[in-house]
Design a protein around this nucleic acid. Structure first.
Length: 108
DNA sequence: ACGCTGACTGGGT
DNA sequence: CACCCAGCCAGCG
């Protein structure tokens, strides 16, 4: 059985609206994990234990698709984002500040 | 138990 | 924006 926070990370990730992205740090902060590295690791697990998690909507603080090499193909992450209307150039999200979404927006 | 690694981050230069 | 550095913590040999 996987650690409980892994399910939490998956739940939060599922709440990210299509066409928007968030960061490892935002999720780590929301779940008070204390380490953003855990978020990346938890998402890595979703590739095998949960295929219904939009892991492609999670990028690093610069808006870079740092996890693209862990998908079936290195371009899959970018393709999924572009399919949702997110412009991606050189493995980096365009207008990152605009498409950025934080779990705290759930309380709007 | 120990050291290295990593889908990370914030602060300083 | 780029580079360096320290803090972070689970997994693995």
């Amino acid at each position: 059985m996987a650690a409980p926070y892994i399910a939490d990370v998956h739940d939060v990730t599922r709440l990210i609206p299509p066409g928007r992205v968030t960061t490892y740090g935002a999720i780590a902060d929301y779940l008070t994990l204390g380490s953003a590295r855990m978020v990346g690791w938890a998402l890595f697990q979703c590739l095998t234990v949960a295929d219904d998690v939009p892991a492609h909507r999670v990028v690093n603080r610069r808006g870079e698709l740092s996890g693209r090499n862990h998908f079936a193909t290195p371009t899959l992450m970018q393709e999924r984002l572009e399919a949702e209307g997110v412009a991606v150039v050189d493995a980096t999200v365009r207008d990152f500040a605009t498409v950025f979404w934080s779990p705290t927006e759930l309380f709007d």
